[in-house]
Design a binder for these strands. Structure first.
Lengths: 228, 228
DNA sequence: ATGGTATGATAGTAATACTTTTATATTTGC
DNA sequence: GCAAATATAAAAGTATTACTATCATACCAT
């Protein structure tokens, strides 16, 4: 699977970038180093000028790939969710048992990325940390409706919907499958954040994971369909 | 109760401001108009210069109250959570029945603010909208640990903890009361946001509220203590 | 050898996020 | 009622950000 994941390409809405960063060496360096820098200094302190210095390229060259750093964040987030979606679809694909399927999906979606499995330019461990710390900022804007209309969040929406479908498969009487699915994805990022910065607001720690919390929550909440 | 709430003062950590905005007319105008403007233009577009123009005061005068707009957001958020805490404590205070108590708390904490009950300078309806759209930005920063140490989030933490205590009161066997409490508060803001901008990711709409969703979730999840 | 495309270097602009200084108004203490 | 203290206003200055524009160079393909 590692090899497979390594060779896939995540189909990202081409309105997000001006020039596909996968199409050149400079583009890949932009992605690679921006992940390191955003993780290191946080999204607000990160600038294209600093990135240019880091990759020994010119600020203006970076602007030929992305309009601004907001678009770059949208790109990174889309890549991350696309990658997670792939992992989830792959991992749940062959599972016939509905409960096992849902369990496996929740596992994939709520786990942290522990090891950098890629030998590509994208460090998934750091990207996961970036999503925990910065993803909300990509949609908590005044432009969200326009950008949503332009399809900047399709991958994330598709992922939530896939989870929703597996919830419905296991319990088609549950009245809030969409809300539960979005709560799992968003809430899992939040629990990781709390674990790091507000440990008193969560029960997750070295021994208890967000995965366990949400797994427990979901299966206390849902009741299996009578027809199996 | 309206009158009572109107006359209370929310005790906000005095490190958040340089000069207490409640202590002067200018201070109150800063708070009042910043709420209108942040709601209107979003936190990123909002600046002290624009606020100065709006209230016909000088940018430098605003800087004597708050170091920067981030601190102002922390102030507004603290005020909001303090106000909600007060409403919740007041509403649940006399309730002996543990289930009723928890239910009432969830109701208060997950409802939107529909009407501006205050005749003061703070518009709670808009402040509620600001918290939905901007609160995450106040803690998703590189400074969060230092600011947390300085007590900038005490009110929010106390509120989560109060909810946690009511959860434990109703079901002292449940293993994740802190995570559930933080999920309710954070998740409720998120569901309101989704309802507005990503309706396909939530089951909440004109007829179904985040309150109903979380009420259902909590009471499917928790089991009452045997000792009543 | 020529034309096209990608990148680099440099400079420029408007806005942001402040800080500083000085002036003026208002309050309060005696 | 006057002096002193305090609050606010006005204006200017600085460093940084978030770009845009122009021009030069390099390299690649035909």
């Amino acid at each position: 699977m590692e090899r497979l994941i390594h060779s896939i390409r995540i189909g990202i809405n081409d309105k997000i970038y001006l020039k596909d960063p996968e199409s050149s060496d400079l583009g890949k360096r932009i992605i690679e180093q921006s992940i390191l820098m955003i993780d290191e200094m946080g999204f607000e302190s990160f600038t294209f000028r600093k990135l240019g210095e880091q990759i020994k390229s010119n600020e203006s060259s970076i602007y030929r790939y992305f309009e601004n750093k907001h678009k770059l964040l949208l790109y990174l987030a889309s890549w991350y969710w696309g990658w997670l979606e792939y992992k989830m679809v792959f991992a749940t694909n062959g599972i016939a048992n509905k409960k096992d399927k849902l369990q496996r999906a929740i596992e994939i979606l709520t786990q942290t990325v522990e090891e950098d499995i890629s030998f590509s330019h994208i460090n998934e461990v750091l990207l996961n940390k970036i999503v925990i710390n910065e993803y909300s900022k990509s949609y908590l804007t005044k432009e969200v409706d326009r950008e949503n209309k332009d399809g900047y969040f399709v991958i994330y929406k598709r992922l939530v919907n896939r989870l929703r479908e597996m919830i419905v498969l296991w319990d088609d009487q549950y009245p809030y499958p969409s809300s539960l699915a979005s709560t799992i994805l968003e809430g899992s990022l939040h629990q990781y954040f709390l674990q790091e910065h507000f440990p008193m607001l969560t029960d997750c720690n070295e021994t208890t994971t967000p995965t366990e919390y949400f797994m427990d929550l979901v299966f206390r909440t849902l009741k299996p369909n009578s027809h199996g």
